[in-house]
Design a protein around this nucleic acid. Structure first.
Lengths: 339, 339
DNA sequence: CTCAAGGAGGAAAACCTTTTCCTATGGTTT
DNA sequence: AAACCATAGGAAAAGGTTTTCCTCCTTGAG
C-alpha cells in the first residue's frame, strides 16, 4: 500500500539505485535526473521505510532510554535534556520504565537490543556487577546517567553529578553558617544508591569539622514527601536536644520535613534551617522558598546524550566518568545561627 | 556479527522455516525437533531481529507518543499510564516532544510514520483541521488524548476529560458553598485549547446561577506558577471589591495565586477560597492542602492506550470520544462563605 | 588513432525474517 | 490394493532498502 522506492524509480524512468543515490548523495547523479527524481519524491511525499533501511545499514537512529519512573520530575527533566539533543541530531528516543527493579532493567536491555537501538542511556538505581556485565555484552553502546556503577572505574561511560560532594557542600554550607547540631534526612540505604553517597557526603563534612552526631540524628527512608514527614517526626520525637539544621536527601524529603515542623509549631528557618537536594521547579513555589543544592538534570541529560552520540558515531572509544556541576542555592529555609 | 535464525537452523540441523515455526507456533513441528531447536535458541540467547520481522509482518510493536512537554508532571502521569498498558501488551513507546507547536507536531507525525509505528497517541494543544487532516492521511491509527479536536465530532478517537464540565463543577462547588463573587484565573486563550473550555465551564456555572461578573474578574495567561502569581496580582489591584473565591485553571496557577495573596496578607481560605485543577502530587504538600479538581491523568493514559490497541489489532473501527471522570477534591484552600 | 581512465547509471546481492508453495511420507478409506 | 489425504518439513519468495559490482560512454593522453 505504502509507496516504495521502486514506485519512484518507475515513475521517474530510472533505476532504483539512482533514486537511492539522489536521496543519500552517495554517488554523483546528473543534474537533470537528480531534478526529475527529486520532483517525483516531493510530489508523492515519499519517505524511505526505516525498517528496510535499518536492516541493511544496521542503524535505526533510535536511542533507548531506561529510567525508573517516568512521572518523577527529576527523570522528566533528565529525559527532556536527552530528547533535546537527540532530536537535534536526528535520533528518536524510546523511553522505558524500569520501576528501579533489576529484573525489569535486564529485560529492557534485551528489548532495546532486539529493537536494534543504536545506543542506550541508562538511569539505574543500583548498578551492580550483574547489570554491568549485561551491558557490556550488548551490541550497542551504553552510557550511564545520574548514577554511576558500583563497579571498578570507567568500564562504562558515565555522566552524573557528584552526590558525595554535593551533600558535603550542603552540610559545609550549614556548618559555615554556624550550625553544629546538624541532622540528616535521607533516602534509601540501598547498597550502591545515590542515597548512600549522599549520606557519605554528610558524614565527611561533619567528620572534617570534628563533630560527632548521635545515630538518632540520621534518618533514612524513601526520597518522598511522606518519608520526609515521617523521618522528621522520628527525629523530633527521639531527640530531646533538637538539631538546629537538617540536610535532606531530596527536595521532597525537605518539604515533608518542613511540613511536619510546621504542624508542631517549629519555625523554619527561625528554629531549624533545612536544605534540600535537586532543586525541583516546585522549590520556589513554597514560602519560604526552599534552599537546596541544584542538580542540573536537564544539562546532565544533554551531556549524556552527546556522550552517547560520540560512541555511536565511533568518534570516541574510551569510557570515562563526567561530572556535571552542582550549586548551593540559598533561599529562605536556611539561616545563619546566631551565636 | 549478531546471531541469526540461519545460525540456529544450521546448528540444529533443520531448515530456517522450522526454526521460525518453533518460535512462532505457526505450524506443527514434531516434539523432538521442537525440543532440539528450543535448546539451541536458549543456549545462544537468540532473539529475532525486530527490523526484519517488522519489514515482513508490517508490525513493529512500537507506539508513538506525542506530548508538548516531557517534564510537565501532567504529561508525566499521562505517559506513565500509557506506558503501563503498552508494556503489558508487548508494545514499546517512542516518546516525542512537540513543544506544543503545530509545525513540530506535523513533523513528528511524519517521523513516526516512517519509523513504522503501529499507532500513535497524540496529546496536542490545539488540534485544528490541518492537524486532523494530516492524521487521517497516516498509515497508522491515532487516538487523541487529553485534548479533543476542534473538528466535527468523532473523526478521530479521543480519550479525554470534560474540561467544561470539570470547571463548571468546581465553580458550582464554590457557589454551593455560598460564594457569589467568584473570579477566574485561567490558562491560555488559544482558540481550541483546554484553557478556553475551562473558561466556558466557569461562565456556564455563573450564568446558570444568574450571576454576572465584571471582566476584571477574569484573568488569563499561562498554566504556570508565575502566571498565577501575576494574574492574582492584577485581580487584587484592579478590583476594589475583591472576590471571595477563585477558580484556577491549573494547580500551578492556584499555587501562584495563593503565594501572592500570602505576600499581601490575605488569608486563604479565610478571606478568599481557591480551587485548583489537575491535582498534582504536590497539591498535598502545601499547607493548607490545595482543594482542586482531580483529573486522573494516569488512568486517562491507560484508557487511551487500550483504545489505541483496539484499533491496532483491528478489533474496533468506529471512532468515539471517551471521557474519564473528574472529581472535586475538597481540601484546605476552600471554605464555605459565612452569610 | 588507440588505449586508459573516469563518470554515470543499472542489475543484482545482501540484510533477516515470515510465509507461501512444494514434496515426501505414512496412514486412511473404499 | 489403489487412491487419497493429512502432516511434517524444506526451498524459495517477499518485504524495501543500500551497496557492490558491472557496463557503457566520454574524454584525455600518448
Amino acid at each position: 500500500m505504502a509507496i516504495t522506492i521502486a514506485d519512484i524509480a518507475r515513475e521517474a524512468g530510472v533505476s532504483i539505485s539512482t533514486v537511492s543515490r539522489v536521496m543519500n548523495n552517495t554517488k554523483p547523479v546528473s543534474p537533470e535526473l537528480r531534478e526529475r527524481v527529486y520532483e517525483i519524491i516531493e510530489k508523492n511525499n515519499f519517505k524511505p521505510n526505516a525498517l528496510a533501511q535499518g536492516l541493511i545499514t544496521k542503524k535505526t537512529n533510535i536511542v533507548g532510554v531506561v529510567i525508573p519512573d517516568i512521572s518523577n520530575p527529576v527523570f522528566g527533566a533528565l529525559t527532556k535534556g536527552i530528547n533535546s539533543v537527540c532530536t537535534k541530531k536526528g535520533y528518536t528516543i524510546m523511553v522505558c520504565e524500569s520501576g528501579g527493579e533489576q529484573e525489569q532493567e535486564m529485560k529492557l536491555l534485551d528489548v532495546l537490543e532486539d529493537k536494534q537501538t543504536d545506543g542506550v542511556l541508562f538511569a539505574g538505581v543500583d548498578i551492580n556487577q550483574v547489570l554491568v556485565d549485561a551491558m557490556l555484552k550488548k551490541q550497542y553502546p551504553v552510557v550511564l546517567v545520574t548514577q554511576e556503577s558500583a563497579v571498578e572505574e570507567n568500564v562504562i561511560d558515565t555522566v552524573t553529578h557528584d552526590n558525595v560532594r554535593a551533600v558535603y557542600d550542603a552540610t559545609k554550607f550549614l556548618l559555615d553558617n554556624g550550625h553544629e547540631r546538624i541532622a540528616y534526612l535521607g533516602g534509601p540505604k540501598h547498597d550502591f544508591s545515590s542515597g548512600k553517597k549522599r549520606l557519605k557526603g554528610y558524614r565527611m563534612a561533619l567528620e572534617e569539622a570534628g563533630i560527632t552526631v548521635p545515630d538518632s540524628y540520621i534518618e533514612q527512608g524513601e526520597f518522598s514527601f511522606q518519608s520526609g514527614y515521617e523521618g522528621m517526626k522520628r527525629l523530633y520525637e527521639e531527640n530531646s536536644i533538637l538539631p538546629t539544621a537538617v540536610v535532606a536527601g531530596s527536595d521532597l524529603i525537605a518539604i515533608g520535613g518542613i511540613q511536619f515542623l510546621n504542624s508542631v509549631g517549629v519555625s523554619v528557618p527561625d528554629e531549624i534551617s533545612i536544605i534540600g537536594f535537586d532543586d525541583l521547579d516546585f522549590a520556589t513555589c513554597l514560602r519560604p522558598e526552599l534552599s537546596t543544592v541544584r542538580i542540573p538534570y536537564f544539562a546532565e541529560g544533554e551531556k549524556a546524550a552527546k556522550e552517547l552520540i560520540k560512541f555511536m558515531t565511533g568518534s570516541k572509544e574510551k569510557a570515562a566518568t563526567h561530572y556535571v556541576p552542582h550549586k548551593i542555592i540559598r533561599r529562605g529555609t536556611t539561616r545563619a545561627k546566631s551565636k
